[in-house]
């Protein structure tokens, strides 16, 4: 088992885009194992930080239900709403606010669930992205093995170390996706000895497929919604 210090050095090398470490990782016989440990370590560190941040945020925030009650009572007292109710006595805000309460209630624990799931999400994302990028790199003339691709792209997950700031409640992590993509590009270049443009397209194939899938799914959902509205 590699030492934590070594794994931490690998992840920070990914964060700071150290090209020499990417090349060393390509020639590392245990690239896949080390890559897996780096992604898992980063996921656990970010997950724990996010968990602490979420708990502190919940303690430092007012009760959302109390806020919703105040908002509803205030709207009901406005001259605008009173006039609206005079014109249409059946108008009632209760159903709307009950639904809103249910939504707020259901999202209350989503932050905690997300924090616990972080290492698994990172590992799944790394494996899926790595497999797609490997196929793209090979089809563009790359020479690396799947283990080398995964080993090198794992270093890019070091960019997620920036998300450790979430240990501070209300802090927002930004820039991790773009920095991670730049790391993947460097990883693919190192693993497959690709030219700059080929590595660029190999790094982008996965996100492009994802965006296209999301677009198709959004259009499908919109079509279903329109069909349902027409049916009504």
């Amino acid at each position: 088992m590699e030492s934590l210090a070594y794994l931490f050095r690998l992840s920070t090398a990914g964060l700071f885009l150290d090209t020499n470490t990417f090349r060393e990782q390509r020639d590392n016989p245990a690239a896949l194992r080390d890559g897996f440990l780096v992604v898992a370590l980063v996921g656990i560190v970010v997950g724990v930080a996010s968990l602490i941040g979420n708990v502190l945020s919940a303690l430092a925030s007012p009760d959302p239900q109390a806020i919703l009650d105040i908002v509803q009572r205030s709207i009901e007292r406005t001259p605008f709403f009173i006039e609206l109710q005079r014109a249409n006595p059946t108008i009632n805000l209760d159903p709307f606010f009950i639904q809103l309460s249910e939504i707020v209630g259901s999202t209350r624990w989503s932050g905690l669930i997300g924090a616990v799931a972080t290492p698994f999400v990172y590992l799944a994302g790394w494996l899926i992205y790595g497999a797609v990028a490997h196929l793209a790199a090979r089809s563009l003339g790359g020479e690396g093995t799947l283990a080398q691709t995964l080993g090198c792209t794992a270093l890019a997950s070091g960019a997620n170390l920036l998300a450790v700031v979430q240990i501070v409640p209300f802090a927002q992590a930004a820039g991790t996706t773009l920095l991670g993509l730049i790391g993947c590009y460097l990883g693919l270049r190192a693993a497959h000895n690709l030219s700059a443009w080929r590595a660029f397209w190999a790094a982008l194939v996965g996100p492009i497929i994802l965006i296209l899938l999301l677009l198709v799914m959004s259009c499908g959902a919109l079509a279903v919604l329109v069909a349902a509205l027409r049916g009504n």
């Binding site: 502190l56 430092a60 501070v168 409640p169 209300f170 802090a171």
Partner: peptide, 10 residues
Amino acid sequence: ILQALGQIVS
């Protein structure tokens, strides 16, 4: 203070 810290580190 926690909100201010969150803004600072973000």
